[in-house]
């Protein structure tokens, strides 16, 4: 079976220095895969490279078998991969509704119906549809960012620390939504600081360090691995 996302020996970085050193991973259809690791491991760079914001230096990225290595952001989003950055992931001066419109940029056809469907998942956005995104709370903003990504009905969602900076109650809410989205059949590649939570959430996970995959396995298995616990889960 062809993987939803297949990353093979990927190297990428900024300026003269590489952040990712020959990294390989895969996400299957409908799978929720977590990526954990210490600060500076290259988690965010991985997502940015997959989204087309950082040019890969070598390696191969394939989405459902199609090579998208080095493709532009437009082609990547059009081929069903949608990236939600950790910060600045909504347009603050645009209204919630306008944000959703931009989210649907590459698939404008049924924008309104899809917006309604997406808003069903995040009812709070319907209430605040005319509000400027800059006035939303942190949790609402995170919902909007995910909602925007869903506007193009992607096959794979890249989430960069969706729970960062949120109160525990809101974190739970965000993780619930992530689970719900995944339950609808979307593949998700989730990068998280909150390793415990994400390992509990995911089916499989990769542990990154220094731009390389150090370990991989089922979420539960990694969580119970004493080595991983000691290194990345704080005992």
């Amino acid at each position: 079976m062809t993987a939803l996302l297949e990353v093979h020996e990927l190297s990428a970085g900024y300026g003269d220095s590489d952040i990712l050193h020959g990294l390989s991973l895969r996400v299957d259809d409908g799978e929720l895969v977590a990526v954990i690791g210490p600060n500076g491991a290259g988690k965010s760079t991985l997502l940015k490279t997959l989204a087309g914001l950082v040019r890969p230096r070598s390696g191969r990225i394939a989405l459902r078998g199609a090579d998208i290595t080095g493709a532009g952001t437009r082609r990547i989003v059009a081929s069903g991969l949608c990236y939600v950055p950790q910060e600045a992931n909504v347009f603050p001066s645009l209204s919630v509704w306008e944000n959703l419109t931009i989210g649907a940029w590459t698939a404008p056809g049924a924008s309104n119906e899809r917006a309604r469907a997406v808003v069903d998942l995040f009812p709070v956005l319907a209430e605040r549809r005319r509000a400027r995104a800059g006035t939303l709370s942190g949790g609402e903003r995170q919902m909007l960012a995910m909602a925007m990504a869903l506007m193009v009905e992607p096959r794979l969602l890249l989430l960069d620390e969706p729970s960062a900076g949120l109160a525990p109650a809101l974190q739970r809410l965000v993780f619930d939504r992530v689970r719900e989205i995944n339950a609808r059949g979307l593949g998700i590649l989730l990068v998280e600081q909150n390793a415990r939570e994400s390992l509990a959430l995911c089916q499989r996970a990769y542990v990154l360090a220094m731009g390389r995959v150090r370990a991989e396995g089922a979420g539960g298995a990694l969580r119970d691995d004493p080595e991983i616990r000691r290194l990345y889960l704080g005992g």
Partner: peptide
């Protein structure tokens, strides 16, 4: 207009706009 909204979105955050496929 859609293009007008895209222009404001680009002004807000050109990288995010590009990620969303805005030319």
């Amino acid at each position: 207009t859609r293009l007008g909204i895209a222009m404001r979105a680009t002004a807000d955050n050109p990288r995010l706009a590009a990620v969303k496929g805005v030319p």
